[in-house]
Design a protein around this nucleic acid. Structure first.
Lengths: 379, 379
DNA sequence: GTGAAAGCGCTAACAC
DNA sequence: GTGTTAGCGCTTTCAC
């Protein structure tokens, strides 16, 4: 039994006349049964189109011949439906799977796909790899693109394909569906909160601003030229808000990190505090970085928020556990909305942009700065 | 420009004579250029087969006509290569993405796929859904099946497809490639450790034993009939080890949980301790459950390991952070090995089984039991 | 270096 | 309820 199965599996077991040594096809099944291909096809796809008895015979013969049912690729070619959604994620997977915000999006997207009964095809695309062939090779009905830089070659490849595309977060492209939080409002709410507390000596920790690695301070020029729309927007909004309360943005240190881990957040905070020890608040463009900053503050014996205010962005579970002041965005919903949008794309004609709500969550890591006197003499 | 692009995108923009309103094809491109289809195909797939000049012309015309390159599905049909690996995961994705062990496997698999430049196709298959159509619809070159019950219908569907399959962890099927840790040895090392410390009043927390929900005590019969090979093996090995030191396994409470979360581990521990307060050690078949048990112990004011020994299984990062005594298994390697095995499947003929090493890691959650006197009068 | 012929395996009209 | 016809869009010998 097992032997037969193996032989059959490896295509060595052919009990039907055939030129090649491959398995049975719908045509060969039809021939064996003495019916037309249509009938066999119907047995699988439209059970109501043929008598139960005939259907039983077809399926039974199929089993006997080891016919595994209609070939999905051939069917896709014919029906012009791949039954899968592509996900483009230009990030190390090892990282993507560890970032709760990314996992949330992935999960939401997967849920939407599951609801629709379509597969989720992860396109292999590491950050370094310029190879976009994988995008062209993916047999999918559409793509979800998650947070890539403006000039990502994979994104260009995706857009060149004649299938609907939904971008999550970034970049912002006219004519392309998008799902993203109201980034501007969100970051402004944090900035207002921090500025409102009275902080004027601030520092910023941000994520990668370009496809090139720059682990260190980011000049205003670099900030403005950032290839990542989200970071660019957040920094610009911060600049505007603090300029409005009299802070010269040119004097505000912004530390960039290529990788996005808690450790990187910690080293970024260290770099910031080593050079600018008088900073009273660190605004981070992500919770992950903020958690790192929190760790570094602890290491230096700085009390948060008494000595230092730290804020994040995203509202991941770890952040609320740590009591981080942050902006929450519904990441799972983001992914799910993207999936739904994509799967309903054929119904629409005009590009749609879904903006998700965000919410400032004041935790225990933000407070008014100590006065200069307090700083030197204690409260 | 944008308008043109949009029109083209939605197939309304046809500058070529065509019956349908769909985009250009390789054939239409060839016609336009006055060359054969072969030449156009070569321009994409075998650049060395035609003059650079001609190739340039082809690509240039393609761009002009908005031809997105060879259709991946048609190509797959012709080449009999889908360029994707299917992943069958009969578990709520929301859970799968939260379980570090599962994420590790996923990540390793994704890495292997990335190395090979093939996509990873997540098959939509929730636990409840009996719908196996998605398996048949997936255009993939093979499947990786991650930890499903013996009688999973999706698994049956996968095996009916004429593509190679690699099973990770469970079930154990003759003739099918598999990658799994040495479960037996691993759990015995924990059991020996606990038994060696002198524990005789033990309790066990285990994961789902069948596709039916049974949140509560699991009879020996149920243990032995478990549809999940891994759990069955682990429980059997525990039974054997403790019987060997004089414990009657019939008296050992085993609490089962359908869902696999820290909270479930906590409620399971509560149920166990409420009914069997004299238990001195809780052996858990996963770190997640053990972390829950740890939390519950804290809630009850039980000191670990002074009052209660707790052990886990998997060696996830959270476990080492908590100092949990556990068995570590290389989850990332497991996924990567599965991917490599699958992608090299055509080279082999005989089924291969890869067994990964495990390692007992004694932490700070295991110690000898207090004597009866100590229990009542303190140390 | 280029082209002609021959399908890959299937489904959707439409006719019977 | 069942069969006939006509491709879906592509690659791949093999000839020229």
């Amino acid at each position: 039994m097992l032997l037969l199965w193996l032989l059959n599996r490896y295509g060595l077991f052919m009990n039907r006349p055939m030129r090649t040594r491959r398995g049975a096809t719908l045509a060969s099944l039809a021939a064996e049964l003495g019916v037309s291909r249509t009938t066999v096809s119907n047995a699988y796809n439209r059970p109501d189109q043929l008598s139960p008895e005939l259907r039983r015979r077809v399926l039974e013969t199929a089993r006997r011949l080891g016919y595994p049912g209609p070939d999905p690729v051939a069917r896709s070619l014919r029906t012009r439906k791949a039954g899968a959604v592509g996900l483009l994620l230009t990030e190390n997977l090892s990282y993507a799977f560890r970032d709760p915000a990314a996992v949330g999006v992935l999960e939401g997207l997967a849920l939407a796909c599951e609801d629709a009964g379509v597969g989720l095809h992860l396109v292999p695309a590491s950050p370094g790899r310029e190879e976009v062939a994988a995008v062209h090779r993916a047999g999918v009905d559409g793509f979800v693109v998650y947070s890539v830089p403006d000039d990502d070659p994979h994104l260009a490849a995706v857009l060149s394909r004649p299938v609907p595309t939904v971008i999550v977060d970034q970049p912002r492209l006219d004519g392309v569906d998008r799902v993203s939080p109201d980034d501007e409002t969100a970051i402004v709410s944090v900035a207002d909160h921090v500025a409102g507390l009275g902080h004027r000596q601030i520092g910023v920790l941000c994520m990668r601003l370009g496809r090139d690695r720059n682990d260190g301070f980011a000049s205003v020029d670099r900030q403005q030229r950032a290839h990542y729309h989200v970071q660019r927007t957040r920094l610009a909004a911060l600049a505007r808000t603090f300029e409005a309360v009299g802070v010269d943005w040119n004097t505000v240190p912004v530390v960039e990190r290529f990788d996005h881990t808690v450790d990187d957040g910690a080293t970024a905070a260290r770099q910031l505090l080593d050079t600018y020890p008088r900073v009273t608040a660190i605004i981070c463009t992500s919770d992950i970085l903020a958690l790192g900053a929190l760790a570094e503050a602890g290491r230096r014996g700085l009390r948060v928020p008494a000595d230092l205010t730290i804020t994040g962005f995203d509202g991941i579970a770890e952040a609320s556990r740590a009591g981080l002041t942050t902006v929450h965005q519904p990441v799972l919903e983001k992914g799910r909305a993207a999936g739904r949008l994509l799967l309903s794309a054929s119904d629409r004609v005009k590009p749609e942009v879904i903006t998700l709500p965000t919410e400032l969550r004041v935790g225990t890591t933000s407070a008014p700065p100590r006065t200069a006197e307090e700083q030197w003499f204690g409260p």
